[in-house]
């Protein structure tokens, strides 16, 4: 698995020490990983996340859509969208609870 910050990450300066860091968009590539690999990769990324962050999970395991919804319900986070793109399931999640 890999979890790389995509788009613009947190800026190293600006805003001063009291500023809330802007949300991050993290891509978690779990393609080719069988259950429960994708949900584990998601969980590991979640542990490094903050409220407001978006995690984009890429997976090919056919159980990923219901499992991700179950994970979100269990952990109190939000599934923004689920798309099927050329054999890849792309799940966007908003971290609403840490």
């Amino acid at each position: 698995m890999s979890a790389l910050p995509a788009g613009d990450g947190r800026p190293g300066d600006g805003g001063g020490p009291a500023a809330v860091p802007p949300p991050r968009h993290t891509v978690v590539d779990a393609r080719g990983s069988a259950c429960p690999g994708p949900i584990t990769d998601l969980s590991l990324a979640y542990r490094r996340s903050s409220v407001g962050d978006v995690i984009e999970l890429l997976a090919t395991d056919p159980g990923v859509e219901p499992d991700t919804r179950a994970w979100a319900a269990k952990t109190g986070n939000r599934v923004i969208s689920v798309e099927h793109r050329d054999g890849t399931i792309v799940v966007l999640l908003e971290i609403t609870r840490r």
């Binding site: 056919p62 219901p66 919804r69 179950a70 319900a73 109190g76 986070n77 099927h84 609870r97």
Partner: peptide, 18 residues
């Protein structure tokens, strides 16, 4: 990969964060 329809998570009896 086929499209799948699942019930929305809001129907889950799980208590978030419990």
């Amino acid at each position: 990969m086929s499209e799948t329809t699942v019930r929305p998570a809001t129907e889950s009896p799980a208590r978030p964060g419990a």
